[in-house]
Design a protein around this nucleic acid. Sequence first.
DNA 1: GTCAATACTTTGTCCTGACAAAGTCTTGTG
DNA 2: CACAAGACTTTGTCAGGACAAAGTATTGAC
Lengths: 250, 250
Amino acid sequence: MTSDPTPVRPVEVDRTSPVPLYYQVATRLQELIESGEIGVGDRIENEVDLADRLGVSRPTTRRAIQYLVERGMLVRKRGVGTQVVHPKVRRPVELSSLYDDLIAGDQRPRTAVLSLKVVPADAKVAAALNLVPGAEVTLIERLRYAGDEPLALMHNAIPLDILDFKHEELEVRGLYELLRRAGRVPRMATQVIGARNATMAEANMLGEKRGASLLTMARTAWDDRGRALEYGSHLYRASRYSFELNLSAG
Amino acid sequence: MTSDPTPVRPVEVDRTSPVPLYYQVATRLQELIESGEIGVGDRIENEVDLADRLGVSRPTTRRAIQYLVERGMLVRKRGVGTQVVHPKVRRPVELSSLYDDLIAGDQRPRTAVLSLKVVPADAKVAAALNLVPGAEVTLIERLRYAGDEPLALMHNAIPLDILDFKHEELEVRGLYELLRRAGRVPRMATQVIGARNATMAEANMLGEKRGASLLTMARTAWDDRGRALEYGSHLYRASRYSFELNLSAG
DNA sequence: GTCAATACTTTGTCCTGACAAAGTCTTGTG
DNA sequence: CACAAGACTTTGTCAGGACAAAGTATTGAC
């Protein structure tokens, strides 16, 4: 015996809006769940009835539900129904930079550009960016602060034809923001997260002691068309930063 | 001027098979891309023609393509077409355990169960597992080896009603494998990855020196119905292990 | 009462058809 | 030649219908 499904209250869709119907429905459902009107464990109304009541087709309703399933809010089971499993959207790991993360967390990031130069790519960078060895890249070294505390030491290599950087801009905006503004939208990335002990030089720059634990993150990002945009090799103070991920298995 | 789209060679779908059509189509496309018959950067045939030629409907074709888009192989653009951006599927972060990873990497894992007991959950564990404080959980402490080298020190807490563990089984099988066999399938997890320096005791167990950098990973896993299955707090030798992730932005 | 067969509910797959929106290419005008 | 208007291509959204498959609940036989 399962409890009766919670009927979704008057949801009106706006057919004059440019926002897709399925998205309107998904958003409304998401609100109801986030606000707690539909609680975790509750079953929502079945697709057919819901579609009828909203005045949209079943495929549209299915698509809305699918959208929330992919975000980890709902779980469907054939013959059973659709249940709420989590009260807020769990986004998969974000493709954003530390700068964006800090902005989102109200941390007043500040960036010092330590060096900015064009050099031939070394073997590792060339391999990561899929360039011929010796091709020129922009090498950037930055130190990022959160408030007044240093947080991360970042090294990036960007192929020359992707974008040419201005020192001043990099102090004010994040690398990913600059890339996006230039129409180089990162779409995919592979990351490797590890850790090691700080060298003396690294410790000094980051305000840690020699040997302190540092998180390492190496990332290559690609755009739409599969062009490598950026290779980054970063060091984070483990005492101040960690990576959060949400995983879901299909 | 873009090059002409690569036509997909004779693909026949099998309507007697229980495998969904969209999945058959997606699999076939994936093979063509992985084998290199359709190269990175190539455009594939448009949805309408492809559907016609395969003898399936356009929604079915779209669904197949969508499947590969979500896996980072293809990119679609309205008015332009669908392009190959990556020659193999990039799965999002896997919901698997270290044991599975090692098996997949041919590393002959071995596990020593250091302790296995039932105790009341402390505040942190109770919060992570969404239990009332004081509810009983199984606490497991294990040391994992890859070959002969110690690799990770793992602490897990599992609510009593999820599964009761036998010492011998844990030595032979991974925790996630046992959960799955018991019908407790992990569906979702949140992880936090950080790092810190090893204490003397940790260093001794892991065969590192005191102060060596360790990767920390804390994870809570949920099943289908949103029940918390497991809270794990693990330590990895940073000198021997790192986390790899693939990210993609919608 | 127990257990298997049956009916019912609900999601999964698939089809056809239609129009909208965003790019790209062509064409014609100044 | 430059540039804007329009034609064309291609993906995006949406409808409505049909049947399949997997659970759940009910019923009936023993």
